[in-house]
C-alpha cells in the first residue's frame, strides 16, 4: 500500500515537472511568422498575446518594429479620410455606365462569334491532327508573307461631327462653333477665373498660387 502511494506521488511529481518543462519550452519557442504578424497588428489576445509578449521581451528589435508599425498605422489613420468622394462624380458615373454599355456590346458580339463553336466538339482526335498540321503549314505560309504586309494603320472609327464637351466645373461654360474662314473649331470658355497678375505662368512650376488654392490633380480617366 505504502509502495503504491509512493509510486503515485512519484508519478504526480514526474507529470508536474513534465508540464513545467512543456510550459518552459512553449515559452521559449519562437512564435511562427503568422503569429508574429498578428501580434504586430495588435490582433492577438489572451494566452497567445501573453506568450508572444513574453517571448518578445527578449527580442528588442521586434518590439521596436511593432512600435514603428503601430505608429505608422495611427499616423495613417489620423491623416487619411475614411472615405473619399470621387472628383467629378457625375462624369465618373457617366464613364462607368459607358464602360458597362461597351462591355455589353462586346459580349453580345463574342456570343455571336462563338455560335459555331459546336463544331469543335465534333472534331475527333483523327481530325485534330491533320488540322493542326494544316494550321502550322498555314502559319509557315503567312510567315513568308510577313515582309509584304502593309504597314499597320490606326483603326478607323465613325465619328459624330459635333464633339461632346464636358465641363467638370459647373460655373464654367463652353461655347463651341466652327470658323467659316479656316474651318477651325473654336471654343470660348466663359466663367473662368482670371489668373492673378502677380502669378508668373511661364517658367518654373509654382503650384501654390494662393493659400486657398489647394487643388490636387486627380485623373479620373478609366482604363477600358
Amino acid at each position: 500500500m505504502h509502495g503504491k502511494n509512493s509510486n503515485s506521488i512519484f508519478n504526480l511529481k514526474s507529470n508536474n515537472s513534465k508540464l513545467k518543462k512543456d510550459m518552459k519550452r512553449q515559452h521559449n519557442q519562437a512564435p511562427d511568422e503568422a503569429m508574429l504578424t498578428l501580434w504586430i497588428d495588435g490582433e492577438l489576445n489572451g494566452d497567445e498575446l501573453a506568450r508572444v509578449e513574453s517571448w518578445a521581451q527578449d527580442h528588442p528589435e521586434l518590439l521596436a518594429e511593432r512600435d514603428a508599425v503601430r505608429a505608422m498605422q495611427s499616423n495613417i489613420q489620423a491623416n487619411m479620410p475614411a472615405s473619399v468622394e470621387p472628383p467629378y462624380a457625375d462624369f465618373f458615373n457617366q464613364r462607368i455606365l459607358q464602360a458597362i454599355e461597351n462591355e455589353k456590346a462586346e459580349s453580345a458580339a463574342s456570343v455571336r462569334s462563338t455560335g459555331s463553336q459546336w463544331m469543335g466538339s465534333k472534331f475527333n482526335k483523327w481530325l485534330a491532327l491533320p488540322a493542326a498540321a494544316a494550321a502550322m503549314v498555314m502559319c509557315f505560309y503567312m510567315g513568308t508573307q510577313v515582309s509584304h504586309m502593309p504597314e499597320s494603320v490606326a483603326p478607323i472609327a465613325a465619328v459624330s461631327a459635333e464633339p461632346a464637351i464636358y465641363m467638370p466645373d459647373g460655373d464654367v461654360r463652353a461655347n463651341i462653333f466652327s470658323s467659316d474662314d479656316n474651318g477651325a473649331t473654336v471654343i470660348v470658355l466663359e466663367g473662368l477665373e482670371d489668373i492673378p497678375d502677380d502669378f508668373e505662368i511661364v517658367g518654373e512650376p509654382r503650384h501654390s498660387r494662393s493659400a486657398s488654392s489647394r487643388a490636387v490633380m486627380v485623373n479620373t480617366e478609366m482604363i477600358f
Binding site: 467629378y88 462624369f91 465619328v159 464633339p163 461632346a164 464637351i165 464636358y166 465641363m167 467638370p168 466645373d169 464654367v172 463652353a174 470658323s179 479656316n182 474651318g183 477651325a184 473649331t185 473654336v186 471654343i187 470658355l189 473662368l192 489668373i195 503650384h207 498660387r209 488654392s213 487643388a215 490636387v216 490633380m217
Partner: peptide, 20 residues
C-alpha cells in the same frame, strides 16, 4: 493650375486647328 477645366472628344484635321 492642376484643375481639369474641360474634357472633349474632338476630331483633329491637318490645317484645321482647335482654338480655345
Amino acid at each position: 493650375h492642376r484643375r481639369k477645366i474641360m474634357q472633349m472628344n474632338p476630331v483633329l484635321h491637318a490645317d484645321k486647328p482647335l482654338l480655345i
